[in-house]
Amino acid sequence: MSVRNSLLALIAAQPAHGYGLKSEFESSTAGEWPLNAGQVYTTLSRLERDGLIIPAGDSGSRGEAGELDRRAWEVTAEGREALARWFDTPVENRSPRDEVVIKVLVAIATRQANLRQVLQTQRSATMKRLQEYTRHKIEADPDEQLAWLLLLDAMILRADAEIRWLDLCEQRLKQLDEERGS
């Protein structure tokens, strides 16, 4: 859904060709979501099928599939409505599933590992990753690389949240041990 709506947003901002959309999408998302050409053209075909985009102006003659990349697209009124709905609707139901969370929960449930060691190993790796993101952030130019900078901020804060959660796990377990021991 994100790629479909993102391409729709790029076309709404300015009529565009398939090949231009691919690079614009990649640059606006700091290269984090590389798209292949096939994915772009399939998405464009579906957007057209659903009446959200149409061939732009005089490039409107329908060609063969091989001409898809030479055709410019523009948004329809329905397309603008769909886009507005996407922006107006918060992202919900994010899954808590995550390998780190699952590993820690399973380690607690099964007692098949030294839990403190599992927590420490992960915290150390996550901290190292966070240092790496920060290094990129120090080198980033806020004027020229805003998307990249904001993406790094998101990654840093996720890593920060993971470290806090690992700390919390350790503290809760310690508290439980103390209560049981007393």
């Binding site: 150390s124 966070l130 240092q131």
Partner: peptide, 24 residues
């Protein structure tokens, strides 16, 4: 941790001991 990420090294203490060190 987001601010510790700026450090060249992060020393992690637990129960008075350094249990981990991450180097940028």
């Amino acid at each position: 941790a987001a601010h510790a990420g700026w450090a060249d090294r992060v020393l992690y203490l637990r129960d008075g001991e350094i249990v981990d060190e991450t180097v940028a």
